[in-house]
Amino acid sequence: MSNTFYNEILIEHNLHPTHKHELPDANLVLEGVNPSCGDDIWLKLKVENDEIVDGAFVGDGCAISQASADMMLDLIIGKKKDEALRLANLFLEMIKGTAKGDELEPLEEASILQDVSHMPARVKCAVLGWHTMEEMFKKAAEGKIIPGMSVTTENK
């Protein structure tokens, strides 16, 4: 993929994010923080019968964290929780460099972030939304999530 195409997609999702807005009827809300650079997002999902029927995020951060969160929401809205978690696992494998080529097709545009694996300082930026979603579902399954809860995401 050309560097120009990568930049165009990244810029578009950063400057004109589809999913960066409040979501008043969200029933799962969790803050994700990247302490190494100050990225801070609130991931908000509306989940019914294990399906993500709507999602949004608010917060501040670098272009990579904001674009990655927006691309993630493009992928997971309309999906069952298990499928969203499978996509998160695939994204994280891609960032670690263990998933490549055709196996990345389910990630659609998010696969452009594959090169972030070669930029260690940016990895936590790219995975912030994805780790926040994973942590959200984990805490919800354990009955430990409450609206407005904050979690600091760490690179796994």
Rank of each mutant, 00 (worst) to 15 (best):
M71P: 08
G61D: 04
E48N: 11
G38R: 11
V53D: 03
M72R: 00
V47A: 13
D70H: 09
M71W: 08
I64S: 02
S68N: 08
D39V: 00
A63H: 03
L30D: 03
G61N: 07
D70F: 04
A26P: 12
N27Q: 08
V29W: 04
N27H: 05
L43K: 05
I76Y: 03
G78T: 11
N49S: 15
L28F: 12
V33Q: 04
V47E: 13
C37E: 02
E51S: 12
M72T: 02
N49M: 08
E31W: 05
E48D: 15
L28Y: 08
Q66E: 04
G32C: 07
D70S: 12
D54N: 14
S65M: 03
L43Y: 04
G32D: 02
G55P: 10
V53R: 13
G55E: 08
I64N: 01
L45A: 08
I77F: 07
S36M: 13
K46L: 15
N34K: 02
A26T: 07
C62F: 02
L73M: 10
L73I: 13
F57N: 01
A67K: 00
V33H: 12
S65N: 03
E31A: 13
L73T: 11
M72C: 01
L73D: 09
E48C: 06
S68W: 06
A56L: 06
L45Q: 03
D60S: 13
I77Q: 09
E51M: 14
K44R: 15
E48K: 10
G32S: 07
G38Q: 09
S36I: 12
I77A: 10
D70L: 08
A26K: 11
L45W: 04
V53I: 15
M72E: 05
K44N: 12
D40N: 15
D70V: 07
V47R: 07
V33N: 10
M72D: 03
S36G: 06
S68G: 11
Q66H: 07
K44H: 08
I41M: 01
V58I: 14
P35S: 10
V29G: 01
M71L: 13
F57A: 02
G32Q: 04
A26W: 05
K44M: 15
E51H: 11
L30V: 02
L73W: 05
I52Y: 03
L43M: 14
G59A: 08
C37R: 01
L28H: 07
M72L: 13
G32L: 01
D60I: 12
I41D: 00
F57G: 04
E48W: 05
L28S: 02
D39Q: 06
N27K: 09
E51R: 15
C62H: 03
D70N: 14
D60H: 11
Q66V: 10
N27P: 06
W42T: 15
A67D: 03
L45C: 07
D39H: 04
E31M: 04
L43V: 12
N49Q: 15
N27C: 00
G78H: 14
V58E: 14
G38M: 09
A67E: 04
S36Y: 05
N34R: 06
A63F: 05
E51K: 15
V47I: 15
N34G: 03
G32V: 02
S65G: 06
M72K: 06
S68T: 03
L45K: 01
L28G: 00
D39F: 01
D50S: 14
I77C: 14
S65R: 01
G32R: 01
I41R: 01
I41Q: 00
A69I: 10
D74H: 15
E48I: 12
